[in-house]
Nucleic acid binder design. Structure first.
Length: 680
RNA sequence: GCCGAGGUAGCUCAGCUGGUUAGAGCGCAGGAUUCAUAAUCCUGAGGUCGGCGGUUCAAGCCCGCCUCUCGGUACCA
């Protein structure tokens, strides 16, 4: 495998945050902090690096949000692009360019990209059937259709997914589909779309990833292998929608590029926006591209986007895709809609000027190999016993002593003892280990090693005990303090990629600036007589009360969510008595039950309906063991049209009640009654 | 069900192509120390490496089966 130094320049891309909400700690930990550490590290080495990012502003969810709030999609993305961009700036994420996908340059870039592939015959055209709203005169994307979930029967399920039970759906599966736009019942209509034939690129992807990039992280490699082994399907690159980049082909009115197609092209347009020289980052073999993303994006960045680039023909492909897993918050998944998150803009209100603390905690506990948990307790501990006690404390000790003994002037080093030499020799070793970790995208390890330099400082100071011998051997103390100050100076450089705000503060304190990475390991960064400034604390302790406030805040969010979930869904439309009478619901008794093989949710039941004994397949296996429900009385819809499920004919449907957390319960008579009793 | 990733000290994680008494940080206990934000330094306790079987002179690392967590995918009338 090629080393990063074999390349002349590096293009770092960061996942484009979707502009329908602010960014939270999960985004930061998974993508932006690691990317920024890496970019800063390369820049400090004087290497040619460009880090691009931007807001992803197209797609259906944004149009939905706009509609709900009675504003235009542009209003929505303007608002969140602003919030997101500011949050990144506040946290010191050093994008060389932070753009957005609603710029003209991007529209043109994406449009041209499509046109090139179109002209080369890289797409296949397909006509499919989709829902169409005749009143609003437009096709309905999945998110624009609601109805009753065929799975859990709850109202308000979307065409792609039921929010209530989490099942992913096809829009055509919904019972009583309704257009979100006009409320009318949509009709099925034919529509033409373009597809990227991923299957065609499969042999290439197989070799490129599975053979040539075995060094990718196991989670990334494994995920790709899984997708490729499952067989790749053509993916639609266009949608019937009016918010996005128009498909640049005759007869494509009302169609735009599907958001996943236009979003990664945003990396290209952002680079174009940055420099007229953009092609050298994208089209020369001595450039390498690194995609920083979360695990939800692996398939796009490892399979889809490379296929697009390959099909286009003139672009380089990513050299590595160091995708992270997910960060949980206090044991639960971070969720924008449930407001279970720590929002970056809110964090800075509560923890003013503590960007580095969060950067540190997130990098030290980044979900590199598996999902990780962010807890406020851990945040407090890492701040108090690592940043304050180890790093801040050492620097403070060195600076305070220098002022005490030498009035702030750096003393001259005398003769080094063996122990001095030993300690000093460790500095370049630590630097080397930090470098190796960073080159391998092991940010947790890198930050641990970085802290080891501060640990070394504390140990050296404690072992040397200058305060004990200042009166008897002042000359020796000069050497000791000189070494402590050189370690401090080294620290101020080494921590910069990770803790840029603190690095700046430190360099101000020791009156140094313009340090670069190759200064790490030097023992003469501070010359004799160099004057340093007054000590100031790099970090403050965080008290229990401060942490409790954050925990309370989350607890409130949780309560608010529970309250929202407790509200019953609105009643359905009225039906006539005749409609109701059509349904034949009986009390039945389960006689036999067994799991349907090769399924997770299905039980095959034999039910005594009083009329007959029949077979019903029911999706309740996650909640009941077969042996526990023999003899259970249930409500059964007996005149539902039979249907074959997994090779078994299901003759009817067991009615279930769904609890607040999605758990299912039988609807059965309060007293045992004879099978066949009618419910009505 | 199938595919992928994980399951190593109280917590968060390392463990190279299998090789002597399984490591680190935090936490905990004891001691030292006072320059420093009661911070620091030293020492120590603590693990049947998810479980069972197998291959091997030797397995946390290889193979099989099982189990739990996370993600993808199929199924849910």
């Amino acid at each position: 495998m090629k080393q990063s130094k074999d390349f002349k320049r590096t293009l770092i891309t960061t996942a484009l945050p979707y502009a329908n909400g602010p960014v939270h700690i999960g985004h930061l930990a998974g993508v932006y902090v690691p990317a920024d550490i890496y970019a800063r590290y390369l820049r400090m080495q004087g290497r040619d690096v460009v880090m691009v990012g931007g807001s992803d502003e197209h797609g259906v969810p944004i149009t939905l949000k706009a509609k709900n709030e009675g504003v235009t999609p542009q209003d929505v993305v303007d608002k969140f692009h602003g919030i997101i961009k500011e949050a990144f700036e506040d946290f010191g994420i050093t994008f060389d360019v932070y753009s957005r996908t609603t710029t003209d340059i991007h529209k043109k870039t994406a449009s041209d990209f499509f046109k090139t592939l179109y002209d080369k015959g890289e797409f296949v055209e397909k006509v499919t059937e989709q829902y169409y709203d005749e009143e609003a005169k437009q096709f309905l994307a999945d998110r624009y259709i609601t109805g009753t979930c065929p799975s859990c029967k709850s109202e308000g399920a979307y065409g792609d997914q039921c929010e209530s039970c989490g099942t992913s759906l096809n829009a055509t599966d919904l019972i009583n589909p309704k257009s979100v736009i006009s409320g009318s019942k949509p009709v099925i209509k034919e529509t033409k779309h373009w597809y990227l034939p991923l299957d065609k690129h499969e042999p290439f992807l197989k070799k490129w990833i599975l053979e040539d990039h075995k060094e990718w992280k196991s989670n990334v490699y494994g995920q790709c292998k899984s997708w490729i082994d499952l067989g790749l399907q053509p993916r639609a690159v266009s949608r019937d929608l009016d918010w996005g980049v128009p498909v640049p082909v005759d007869g494509a009115e009302g169609k735009v590029l599907y958001v996943w197609f236009d979003a990664p092209i945003g990396y290209i347009s952002a680079t174009k926006e940055l420099t007229p020289d953009w092609e050298k980052y994208w089209k020369s073999d001595d450039s390498r591209m690194i995609h920083f993303i979360g695990k939800d994006n692996i398939v796009f960045h490892c399979i889809v986007f490379p296929s697009m680039l390959k099909a286009e023909g003139s672009y380089i492909l990513p050299e590595n895709v160091p995708a992270n897993e997910f960060l949980n918050l206090e044991g639960d998944k971070i969720s924008t809609s449930r407001n279970w998150a720590v929002w970056l803009h809110e964090y800075l209100v509560d923890f003013k000027d503590k960007q580095d603390v969060l950067r540190y905690v997130l990098a030290a506990n980044a979900p590199e190999t598996k999902d990780n948990d962010f807890t406020w307790k851990d945040f407090q501990t890492r701040n108090n016993s690592e940043l304050v006690a180890i790093l801040g404390n050492f620097v403070n000790r060195a600076v305070v002593l220098t002022h005490k003994y030498y009035d702030g002037k750096v003393p001259a080093a005398g003769t080094y003892t063996d122990y001095d030499k030993e300690a000093l020799a460790e500095i370049p070793q630590i630097v080397e280990r930090v470098e190796a970790a960073l080159e391998g995208f092991k940010f947790r390890e890198a930050i641990r090693e970085m802290m080891n330099l501060a640990r070394l400082g504390n140990k050296y100071l404690a072992d040397s005990e200058p305060w004990k011998i200042q009166k008897t051997d002042a000359e020796r103390v000069q050497t000791i303090m000189s070494i402590c100050l050189q370690i401090t100076a080294n620290l101020s450089v080494l921590i910069e990629p990770f803790l840029p705000f603190t690095a700046k503060k430190m360099q101000g304190m020791i009156n140094l600036s313009g340090l670069v990475w190759s200064d790490c390991g030097k023992l003469d960064l501070l010359k004799e007589g160099h004057e340093i400034n007054e000590p100031e604390l790099l970090f403050d302790k965080i008290e229990d009360e401060t942490i409790q406030i954050q925990l309370d805040k989350l607890e409130q969010a949780k309560k608010a969510n529970e309250a929202a979930a407790a509200i019953a869904t609105p009643a359905k439309e009225n039906v006539s008595f005749d409609d109701f009478s059509k349904m034949d619901i009986r009390v039945g008794t389960i006689l036999e039950a067994e799991k349907v093989k090769k399924t997770k949710k299905l039980l095959k039941l034999t039910v005594d309906t009083g009329i007959d004994q029949r077979t019903v397949v029911s999706g309740i296996a996650e909640f009941f063991k077969p042996e526990d429900i023999i003899g259970q009385q249930v409500s059964i819809l007996v005149n539902l049209a039979p249907r074959i499920i997994k090779g078994i004919e299901s003759q009817g449907m067991i009615l279930m009640a769904e609890g607040a957390c999605g758990e299912l319960t039988f609807v059965s008579p309060a007293k045992s009654v004879k099978p066949g009793s009618e419910i009505g």
